[in-house]
Design a binder for these strands. Sequence first.
DNA 1: CGCCTGTTTGAGAAGGCTCAACGGACGTGG
DNA 2: CCACGTCCGTTGAGCCTTCTCAAACAGGCG
Lengths: 241, 241
Amino acid sequence: MITCPNCSLRKLQAFKTLEPSRLAFIRKIKSAHLSLDAGADIVVPEQDSDEMYTLFSGWAFRYKELADGRRQILNFLLPGDLVGLQASMFNTPQHGIAALTEVQLCVLPRRKVWTVFETMPDLAFDITWLGAREESLIDHNLLAVGRMNARERVAALIIGLYKRSNALGLAKDGVFAFPLNQNHISDALGLSLAHTNKTLAYLRRIGMFTLEGGMMNLTNPRALQRMGQVFDAEFQQRPLI
Amino acid sequence: MITCPNCSLRKLQAFKTLEPSRLAFIRKIKSAHLSLDAGADIVVPEQDSDEMYTLFSGWAFRYKELADGRRQILNFLLPGDLVGLQASMFNTPQHGIAALTEVQLCVLPRRKVWTVFETMPDLAFDITWLGAREESLIDHNLLAVGRMNARERVAALIIGLYKRSNALGLAKDGVFAFPLNQNHISDALGLSLAHTNKTLAYLRRIGMFTLEGGMMNLTNPRALQRMGQVFDAEFQQRPLI
DNA sequence: CGCCTGTTTGAGAAGGCTCAACGGACGTGG
DNA sequence: CCACGTCCGTTGAGCCTTCTCAAACAGGCG
């Protein structure tokens, strides 16, 4: 059941207090729910979109493409993430967003974004904070793609997704759902498909993880974290204001 | 002279209207100016900062480093850009910001950011928009670093900086100030210094540009733009709200 | 003059790429 | 129930873009 009280946004420490008045307001501006199958387009590049979303359940990813088809995945979206903030701030989005799994979205009409800023400054602040948080994730991806070798990149990606899953209560004892295929991984890390496969095989061989049926099992999270140079501090909590 | 009316923010289409009341408000929350020499740290990673800035003049850059010293430049900051929005939204910044040239900054105390959201929703919206714009620039960098070869990356960087300079009125006939050295370029593009040098030499040899005394002269902007696959649409204007 | 920072150039190594083929799992239709 | 197509993961051979290491050069400054 899709209801605001159990929205993952609360797990991100955003929308902390949920007084009746805020709840009522949120309910009023939220125009609908939306369910999409895995693979569906949520935002299409260059195509105007009049909506912004919140990801209630499932995974999605943001990407850009070059004219000849080369694709770069910019970041992955997990429950509680804002979908299409950038798109809603510009006239035409310069990136695409697609569903990685089946997803449920809460729809916020673009015009209403302004209403939020006008009438609910703390909510507006939350939106800005979520935007800054996404940028921080992209920063880390850029560091990985620009300055890490293949092993380090893969390690950083896996650990990063694990930590985010964990913060949402979606991981247990190093085990969590991992819906990416090797194509997604290679496009996220700027590697070729073949080399991604070999790197994954290597990490598996040295006992870093097992992966079957879409479930990732980290068998040596310490070593993986060290290899990926991912620090807890990267995953920040909301500030006090 | 540092005055709000001639701030480059206006050239970005932000802070469009400048009525006396807004101007007075901005002046009130702006606590000081700050001048720093080239090379100075503006934000130090992991070190709490109580201030956010607006870049009035000069260039700066945001970067991240790995434990062993490998550095990735995330994006460059030009006049009118927000400096440290992310840092001000988190408790401790995960990136550093350094001055590339001599810079002049307008200081906005971190606590006042909340005041802006509370009392000036349109200004708050501008801040969020500037944040989304920065993210969009990083997106493009990530695409370049992840999926372009060395020539394409260098071309994309040069053209991107040219377009931004041009939008600020800082370029004329393909000529503009280019304060980066090859170390900055290589760290921004995820290339080694040696290969960056060879790539630049190649582009110069085929007549794409000349560079002397810190002035970049684009002698074949068309070809350079094609090589970098940079589109005008990447540099968006503010939406209508 | 000597030093420092930044640029240039070369030789050799290698990490990652391309191309190609194969295998397994799964779903569909005859 | 089997044949087939498709999607995804796996593996190998050879190549090439980019890296590393090293050295030398140019300009500015105390």
